[in-house]
Structure formats: C-alpha cells, structure tokens
Amino acid sequence: MSDKTRPNGGSDPVDDTESARLTDRAARVAALRPGYRADLADGVARFFEPRRTSCPWCGSERLTTRLRTTDLLQHKPGRFELDRCEDCGHTFQNPRLNEAGLEFYYRDFYDGLGEQKMGGTFGGRTKMYRGRAESMLPHDPTPKNWLDIGTGHGHFCAAAREVLPGTVFDGLDFTDGVGLAEREGRVEHGYRGSFPELAPEFTARYDVVSMFHYLEHSTEPDRELRAAYDVVRPGGHLLIEVPDPESRYARLLGRWWLPWLQPQHLHFVPVANLRRRLTDLGFTVVAEQHTEPHDPVDLLAAVWLALDHTAPREDAPWLAQPPGALRRGLRAAVVLAGVPVLALGTLLDRFAVRPLAHRLGLSNAYRLVARRD
C-alpha cells in the first residue's frame, strides 16, 4: 500500500519491515566480504583432499565419474565431482572436501546469513516430521528417550513430541543450531560436536537413535554407524533416512536433482549396501520404506535450480562486489518469467508423480528401521 492510498499518509509497516530486513542483510554481507575475499585469495584447490583411487565403501578400484557440477545453492566458487563404484554402486564426492573446505562451504548456509531462511524452511515441515516419528510406532510405541543426530534447529524433535508425548528427545549437531534448539525447548539436551567422538558418553543409553538426512553429510559413514550401534541400547532401534542414489530422478534430472546437494553431500549409499552393513554390525533391519520418505519437490527444485543458475546472482559476501541495479532487475525478470514453470513443477510433483513415485522408481529417499540385537 502506498502513502497515497493510506488514510494517515504513513508508510506500510510490511514495507518498512522488508526494507529493514534487506538493509540489515546488505550490511551483514558487506561486513563478511573481506573475510571471504581472504579465504579465496589462493583459490579453492586447498579445500580438497587428494583424489581417491578406490571406493571408500568396498575398496574396489573400478570407479567411474557419475556427475560434475557446481554449487547450485549458494553459488560459492568451485567444481565438484561424484564418482560411482562399479562393484558396489556406492557414489561419493571425489576429490572430497577437507576440514577447511567443509567449514568454508557450510558457512552461512545453516547458520549466519542462512540461519533465518533455513530455519523457516525446516520449521514448516511438521507433517513430514510427524511421519518420521510415526514410522517407529509399529516397532516401539513408547520409547523412553530418543537421540536425533544432525538435529539442526530441533524442528523434528518438536513435532515428534506430539506423536510420542512420553518420549524425551535430545539432539546432536555440529552447528550452533543445536544450542538454539535447546533454548527454544525443542530438545531436552542439545549436544554440539562430532557424533563418533561424543558417542562414548552415551553408551547403550537411548531407545532410539535417528539419522534423518545426516549420513550423506558425514565424512565416514561406517564410523557413524558403529557409533550408533554403541549408543542404541540392546533391543533399541536405529532409524535412518537418506537420499536414494538409485532413484530414476537422479539420472533424469542430472545436476538439477536437488538431493545431490553439492558440495555438502559426500556419500550416497544404495539401500542394499546399507542393509548389509547394518546386519554386519549386529542390527536386524525390521522395516524398509521408499514411498513414505519421498519428498515431492524434485521437478519444482530442478526448475528453481536452473532458473537461479541462469539468472544473475543475488548479492553474497563471496562475490567480489555487489550486483548493480541492472543485474538485480535482470534477475527479477528471469525469476518472474519462470513462475508458470515453477507452478507446473509443483503440480506434477504433488499430484502426478507422488502417488506413483515408488512404483515408477522415482522416490528420492529411503528409510530403514533397524533393531540392535
């Protein structure tokens, strides 16, 4: 509403709030730019480990390149490759980010500049979180305590409490979001750090340990699974949900398939591999789900990633300088032109593909429930 149409001639509070938000973000971007410029002064090669010549899952040396891409979400500089093992099917980032690289590419995604955006995204997925909690009901309808690994801001735990009101939920994450989760009361206890390093403190303590879209972020999935075995009490359960690298969407959409999420996702484990590894560790897989964990956003996300890649960049501290008015206008025009295609993608995702996703091999994730014997 403009001043001309408001009875009191004042400004619209909504416009004022948005203007203040944009001004605050611009100031934060400007303050961060010198630090990023220093980080990038010598290029990005220092962020990677040496290239592997063998599969980290089975040791085979029969590797082929599956995907080459860039950072399609933050648009930080760098190119990333995923290799696939021809013997076991494991797909992994190669060369992999080292510790400095992980810090650089995670920075300002879940926290810092990205905290508010990601908090809003995750906070609006209550139905999905309830579904994850409900998947435990046939196996343990009254767990006393539950540890959620990679809990982020704790939104899953808050929603799961509605399904399991008698369960105490704790959360663990390596970002400072877990502190926010504890302060907001979404988790009883929030632990910050590496799960394998903290696991000895929790030996055989929990009825349920969950890893929802966590394992693909870990540098050593096998180490994480061994830690989970130690933390789950005998007779308790481990609940894992990860992207499905065998989804047909992974091939059809190529680099525009959102679950590739480069450079954050380091490992993609086929379901048969994960079942065997859990069995070897001493778990019994009691449930495998493909329909329930499917998130119907593949086509919408692919269109958005392509539009966002084509349009001029939004301002970010890793850019040499902020975009001018012309580039901002061009970006707005490209995004506006893509709105009908985004709407079509949403409709196809939710109403055409979702009911048939598993039957067509398009499910983008799978979930396993495993009992510690």
Rank of each mutant, 00 (worst) to 15 (best):
T64N: 04
F202T: 15
E220S: 14
E246F: 11
Q116A: 15
P143L: 13
R183S: 04
A227K: 15
L307G: 04
Y366G: 00
V163H: 01
R84P: 02
E61L: 07
D244L: 09
R21H: 09
C85N: 08
P355F: 08
A38R: 15
R359M: 06
T126K: 02
D298C: 04
E115K: 14
R331V: 09
H267F: 06
L347F: 12
G152A: 00
Q74P: 01
Q321W: 07
G150I: 12
T5I: 11
V297A: 04
G43P: 00
L180I: 03
P50R: 04
G361Q: 03
E201K: 15
G43D: 08
V303T: 02
G345Q: 14
G78N: 03
D173W: 10
P141C: 05
I149H: 08
Y366M: 02
A250P: 03
L305I: 04
V334A: 11
G345R: 10
L239F: 03
R251F: 06
A306I: 06
V29T: 02
L73S: 00
R125E: 05
V286R: 01
R277Q: 07
R84C: 10
E188Q: 15
A357M: 01
H139W: 14
G236S: 13
R96V: 11
C58V: 08
G114P: 00
L348Q: 03
Q93P: 01
D3I: 11
S11G: 09
L362I: 10
G254Y: 06
T65D: 05
L225M: 10
N94L: 02
S11R: 12
E241V: 08
A204K: 15
C157D: 11
N273W: 05
L342I: 02
P234F: 14
L266D: 06
E241K: 00
W57F: 08
R248D: 07
A370E: 09
E99V: 12
T175Y: 09
G9E: 11
H213Q: 14
H153G: 03
R6C: 12
K127G: 02
L278H: 08
G166F: 10
L356Q: 12
E246M: 13
K117R: 15
T5D: 12
T64K: 11
G177K: 11
E86R: 05
T64Y: 05
E134N: 02
L67Y: 00
W304K: 05
A20V: 12
P77V: 10
P270M: 05
H75N: 02
E216W: 05
T284F: 02
D87E: 14
V168Q: 12
F48Q: 12
K4G: 08
W57N: 05
H294R: 04
V168N: 06
R6K: 12
K117S: 15
V209H: 04
R276P: 00
P141M: 10
L137C: 01
F174Q: 04
R205N: 07
A30I: 10
G123Y: 03
L368F: 01
F174S: 05
N94H: 08
P296Q: 09
G150N: 12
P323R: 13
L258E: 09
L147Q: 12
V335K: 05
